[in-house]
């Protein structure tokens, strides 16, 4: 009984994660993006804790706490302060307009469900139905990186992808081994610092964080 309830709560959280992934695609303000990212991290932490409770894998609590600390507080804070320091509050520009991006996103979600259908047949974990959502989150993150011009939005896309991967790991196998998870968390943190440093450099070199400016670095013919 508890398991069905947990599975239902988990499905709800998965839906919220997917919703926040779409929200990331739809949002035009940078600060808004950072907030949505923090919410996505929160749903992820919650879902991890629920799965940990239901499956009895107690190390998932630690993962959950780690996710909460990193993705809800630390990374959003770093991004928040970056946005303030670099004074970038204006609207972000998309390569493809937002409605089209959303439609592409829907296609990707359908595609993910199609891909994971055989796995759903084989698996008997209670989280099996959310694997498609996890895959969709990864793809939506990648879609966000492809369609946005601004460096900060690309980082957010990257971090959203990472969220999707993490969610995929918990849904497919009840999480990665603790050591791997700690390592990934550390990597993420370091990546955030490196991005921060790069932002400053890109900003000072090109007077902008528009990654299209970097086409100037191309070897000329």
């Amino acid at each position: 009984m508890a398991h069905t309830l947990a599975a239902q709560i988990n499905s709800l959280l998965a839906a919220l994660i997917l919703l926040s992934a779409f929200a990331l695609l739809a949002q035009r303000k940078i600060m808004g993006l950072v907030h949505i990212f923090a919410w996505q991290g929160f749903f992820l932490a919650l879902s991890t804790a629920v799965i940990g409770f239901a499956s009895g894998e107690h190390h998932l609590y630690i993962s959950s706490l780690l996710t909460l600390g990193m993705k809800v507080f630390l990374l959003p804070y770093i991004l928040y302060s970056l946005v303030h320091k670099l004074k970038i509050h204006r609207d972000i520009e998309a390569v493809v307009n937002i409605p089209t991006t959303m439609l592409l996103g829907i296609v990707l979600v359908v595609f993910s469900y199609h891909l994971t259908a055989p796995i759903r047949e084989l698996s008997n974990l209670m989280t099996r139905s959310t694997l498609a959502v996890a895959l969709a989150t990864v793809m939506l993150g990648l879609l966000m990186m492809v369609t946005r011009r601004h460096a900060v939005t690309q980082i957010l896309g990257f971090l959203a992808m990472e969220n999707g991967l993490f969610f995929a790991a918990t849904s497919a196998t009840y999480g990665m081994p603790m050591v791997v998870e700690l390592g990934v968390a550390l990597d993420l943190l370091i990546a955030a610092f490196i991005f921060g440093i790069f932002f400053f450099h890109i900003n000072t070199t090109f007077d902008s964080l528009d990654v299209d400016q970097m086409a100037k670095l191309k070897e000329t013919d």
Binding site: L142, V146, R148
Partner: peptide, 28 residues
């Protein structure tokens, strides 16, 4: 092969994205 190099990060990311999707379609 040099024509693949555009200098736009989005295009590079698109390469990875398309590769990923194609691989998933064929291997999935």
């Amino acid at each position: 092969a040099g024509k693949l190099q555009h200098g736009h990060i989005q295009v590079y990311l698109l390469y990875s994205f398309i590769t990923l999707i194609v691989l998933l379609v064929f291997l999935g």
